[in-house]
Simulated scan of single mutants.
Amino acid sequence: MTDPDPDRTAGRPDDRAGPVSAWHRLAADAVLLDGFHALKHAVRFGAEVRVALTADRGAALALADELAGDVREELAALLTEVSHDTYASLVPRPHPTAVAALAVRPSRAGNLERLAHSPRTAPVVVLDNPRNLGNAGAVIRLAAGFGATGVVTTGTLDPWHPTVVRGGAGLHFATAVERTAVGELPPGPVFALDPEGEDIRSLKLPDDALLAFGSERSGLSPELRARADHLVALPMRPQVSSYNLATSVAMTLFHWSAAGGAPHAS
């Protein structure tokens, strides 16, 4: 007998034990996609999603109909409905959309190859020893939106930490995201943001630039400053101490894009 509603197949009670068991088996090594939008973006940009669960399949697919028609069928095939208690037991903090998924992290070798590829047609954003997980996620989301080649962090913060991925709304899969030492940064001229630098409005940022940003508290590290080819300052009113990190990245990427580095469809 033909199922009258194929979209409900993955949500049948007798199909739930497999995905939940898979979740427990995969969770330690997989990337947590927290919420509908993270899953939508990950699927849209080619992530290998291993398991996807929701406490309200109908609501999730309604969101897909409204916001993600291009990947609606893929989402319908992936999503398995579970009870809200089961869903809540699997994630650190339930998302309002009651959707969560696990995906395979892109290979480090592949990301490093993308970052080092020459000629680059868009800059790499470098976060020098960032501290705030949410800010790092916001920067990755910005970089993906502007079509940057990737985001590289130095220091101890893991750019694939679940809180960073949550802040990035799954857009880690739309750009190359890795952590390296300063001495292992991709090739290209380094334009480092610093209050003592040259006003960015007088500069044209090249497509192959590394755009480097220090932490809000301590600024650029000595190692990154020594690696910099140019120090660049954002316009700022006197007596205002600093901009938020994500705001600084947004202003700099906009300045680059305004000179012709506009986003383009892949």
Results as ranks from 00 to 15, higher is better:
residue 204 K to N: 13
residue 46 G to L: 09
residue 141 R to I: 06
residue 214 G to N: 08
residue 55 A to D: 03
residue 248 S to I: 03
residue 188 G to Y: 09
residue 105 R to P: 07
residue 159 P to L: 01
residue 126 V to Q: 02
residue 15 D to N: 11
residue 112 L to W: 15
residue 109 A to Q: 13
residue 103 A to P: 06
residue 104 V to D: 04
residue 151 V to M: 04
residue 121 T to M: 11
residue 4 P to E: 11
residue 140 I to V: 15
residue 154 T to W: 00
residue 154 T to H: 01
residue 209 A to S: 14
residue 120 R to P: 01
residue 45 F to P: 01
residue 175 T to E: 02
residue 167 G to A: 12
residue 186 P to K: 15
residue 46 G to S: 09
residue 225 R to A: 14
residue 241 S to C: 03
residue 121 T to S: 12
residue 68 A to Q: 12
residue 89 S to N: 01
residue 167 G to V: 04
residue 165 V to K: 10
residue 217 R to K: 11
residue 223 E to M: 06
residue 34 D to S: 12
residue 137 G to P: 08
residue 177 V to G: 10
residue 168 G to W: 03
residue 76 A to V: 11
residue 55 A to W: 01
residue 166 R to M: 10
residue 195 P to D: 01
residue 180 T to Q: 09
residue 52 A to M: 10
residue 216 E to Q: 10
residue 113 E to A: 15
residue 190 V to N: 04
residue 208 D to V: 04
residue 245 L to P: 07
residue 73 E to F: 13
residue 4 P to S: 10
residue 173 F to N: 00
residue 14 D to L: 14
residue 205 L to Y: 10
residue 169 A to H: 09
residue 253 L to D: 10
residue 25 R to A: 15
residue 239 Q to V: 11
residue 59 A to E: 14
residue 52 A to W: 08
residue 157 L to N: 05
residue 26 L to I: 14
residue 85 D to P: 02
residue 62 A to P: 06
residue 221 S to D: 06
residue 41 H to V: 03
residue 224 L to G: 01
residue 80 T to S: 15
residue 22 A to D: 13
residue 159 P to Y: 01
residue 168 G to F: 05
residue 17 A to I: 04
residue 245 L to G: 09
residue 75 L to D: 05
residue 146 F to D: 03
residue 203 L to V: 08
residue 141 R to A: 05
residue 149 T to G: 00
residue 105 R to E: 13
residue 251 M to K: 00
residue 34 D to G: 05
residue 110 G to F: 12
residue 232 V to L: 11
residue 29 D to R: 14
residue 85 D to C: 02
residue 82 V to H: 04
residue 240 V to E: 15
residue 194 D to K: 00
residue 220 L to R: 02
residue 92 P to F: 08
residue 88 A to N: 12
residue 247 T to G: 01
residue 132 N to W: 04
residue 174 A to P: 06
residue 233 A to E: 06
residue 106 P to M: 07
residue 2 T to C: 02
residue 25 R to Q: 14
residue 146 F to Y: 13
residue 180 T to C: 11
residue 207 D to G: 01
residue 1 M to F: 04
residue 215 S to M: 07
residue 253 L to S: 11
residue 55 A to H: 02
residue 62 A to D: 12
residue 146 F to C: 03
residue 36 F to P: 05
residue 262 A to V: 14
residue 182 V to K: 12
residue 89 S to A: 15
residue 208 D to G: 01
residue 14 D to H: 15
residue 23 W to A: 02
residue 33 L to P: 00
residue 143 A to E: 01
residue 93 R to H: 13
residue 114 R to P: 02
residue 157 L to D: 06
residue 217 R to N: 14
residue 81 E to V: 08
residue 41 H to A: 06
residue 59 A to Y: 03
residue 55 A to E: 01
residue 65 D to G: 15
residue 80 T to W: 00
residue 245 L to N: 08
residue 182 V to S: 10
residue 22 A to P: 09
residue 52 A to Q: 09
residue 163 T to E: 12
residue 195 P to L: 03
residue 100 A to T: 00
residue 173 F to L: 04
residue 141 R to L: 06
residue 103 A to C: 07
residue 190 V to R: 04
residue 106 P to I: 09
residue 38 A to K: 04
residue 27 A to H: 10
residue 208 D to P: 00
residue 62 A to G: 10
residue 180 T to A: 11
residue 119 P to R: 14
residue 135 N to E: 07
residue 210 L to P: 13
residue 166 R to K: 13
residue 151 V to D: 02
residue 16 R to P: 13
residue 220 L to T: 08
residue 103 A to R: 03
